[in-house]
Write a protein that binds this DNA or RNA. Structure first.
Lengths: 138, 138
DNA sequence: TATTGTTATACTCTATAACTATA
DNA sequence: TATAGTTATAGAGTATAACAATA
């Protein structure tokens, strides 16, 4: 088989893997009454406190989009807005205790949901796959 | 390092790869004025003619969602509805010529967009990665 | 003047429920 | 009676543009 064909097959496999993974994540988020984006926010804020604009940059969204996203998660008591100490214009977003609990439960659920897939590989192959993916990521 | 930690690292790498891949696909779709779901529809219909309900099953969406999705793509002249020959209740969805062209252009654009990532691996590693992913997929 | 965040507006995506036409 | 598709409705996600407060 030619090089170009092999590359197309890799890209196809990456695409299918992405849709499979996103499907699992979206389903778990939905079970928790969250959107995929809100799941991402929870994961990002697990070890960080970010301003609205930084969060928007992180997610690749407009700041006006963040306003609604954070407002809805705030209504669910998963996030809280706090004034930024250095800049009176800025607003920090942090996890509430409940948000932290939900984030931890989701992390465990994600591991369980992915197990049927990862378990199809031997431990050595799992390590090899992880290493290859990490070398490919920016 | 423990087995559980290695597995968590693999799942993390899969998640990051998925977000990276979906980000690339979403961006390319947006450049073409399409949503990610519409890009998927175009890709699915490249070598198939499906009824509305089959398309909905394929995408994991409600049939009422398909109605709007297909209507918007039809307005862009990418898809067409055709009566099903066997069942007068059913509606087949097919690509228009324009839809086929756009689908082909998108396929090329996706390959180009992924190149910065896949090119970080040697040809042998690309093959190995593709093989591992295919073994993991259902 | 430039930046941070919000508001107002509009469009897409999605689901649920009710409906029509056909099987 | 069951299935295929549409319509009506509602909520979430998203962007653009205009705005107030602060830097």
């Amino acid at each position: 088989m030619t090089r170009a064909t092999d590359d197309a097959r890799l890209i196809d496999a990456l695409g299918q893997t992405a849709f499979m993974t996103m499907g699992a994540l979206t389903g778990l988020a939905a079970d928790a009454g969250l959107s995929l984006t809100q799941l991402r926010v929870l994961a990002i804020l697990r070890d960080r406190r970010l301003r609205m604009s930084d969060l928007a940059d992180y997610l690749g969204l407009e700041k006006s989009t963040m306003t609604g996203l954070v407002a809805r998660a705030e209504r669910k008591e998963l996030l809280a807005r706090e004034p930024n100490a250095q800049d009176a214009r800025a607003v920090d977003v942090v996890l509430t205790d409940r948000g932290r609990t939900v984030a931890e439960e989701l992390e465990a659920a994600i591991r369980d949901a992915m197990l049927p897939f990862t378990a199809r590989l031997s431990p050595a192959d799992r390590d090899a796959l992880g290493a290859l993916l990490r070398r490919m990521l920016p």
